[in-house]
Amino acid sequence: MKIKLKEIAHARSGDKGDAGNVGVIAYDDKGFEIIKKYLTTEKVKKHFEGICFGKVERYEMPNIRAINFLLHNTLGGGGTVSLKHDAQGKILASAMLRMELDI
């Protein structure tokens, strides 16, 4: 069964130098179990192919049903150097929620 990440989670993203961070928050405990199992580092790395050119780090925050991802080498040099329209990675969260999970 395929589900859209957007249906079970919300998110927020921002910049940390040339890395973007995306925190994905499940709406309920069931959703958190799903993202814990299926929202893997590899899955995220593949999803952001052509956007994230560095490694992906993944941190679980069960206290708020969240997983935080750090996407390295993603913002075209970072905040003020970047030529990207979204130089601060504000849209990475929305881009993450496009993902489909095969569960």
């Binding site: 910049d15 961070n21 925190g23 941190y59």
Partner: peptide, 17 residues
């Protein structure tokens, strides 16, 4: 709400620990 605070908690963080 829980959700609006949770979104801000994950904003621009690295390793949450």
């Amino acid at each position: 709400s829980f959700a609006t605070i949770a979104e801000q908690l994950v904003y621009e963080i690295g390793d949450p620990k």
